[in-house]
Amino acid sequence: MSEHGNWAEWVYIGVVCALLVWVGAEAWNVERLVEHVPADAEVIKVTGQQWFWSFEHEDGTKEIGELHVEKGKAYKFEVTSKDVIHSFNIHDYVVLIDAVPGRINIVWFVPDEVGEHEIQCREYCGLLHYNMRAKLYVEEST
């Protein structure tokens, strides 16, 4: 082919690889932090079905379409589904995990401000997927 050196390409590939290593290491570190559930987190059982969410607190209280939690407490969601695959998502708190029938998936968070947030389904689940929503109420701790 043509007469030219290859050093520029090697430098370029080196830079690309270094960047990729950086991305991988950073992502690995953050994932490690957010995956570890605190030991004292309170369990909330989340069940998705076509096309609504239901919740069960540790003390047995059940809620449908809305979820009340207290500020400053850690919550561990045990997410499952009764029919097809859904995806449990509180976008404002970056909480997301699939609700898979026959499996229990885990995700956790600590709400830190009083307020209302949207809960939605992010995995296509049929006719009313677009409207499979619920509300999260974060309340002052008692």
Binding site: V30, L33, V34, A74, F109, V110
Partner: peptide, 11 residues
């Protein structure tokens, strides 16, 4: 086991 952290901030 993990410690309390704000996943919004970290992510």
């Amino acid at each position: 086991p993990g410690e309390y952290l704000d996943r919004r901030v970290v992510i």
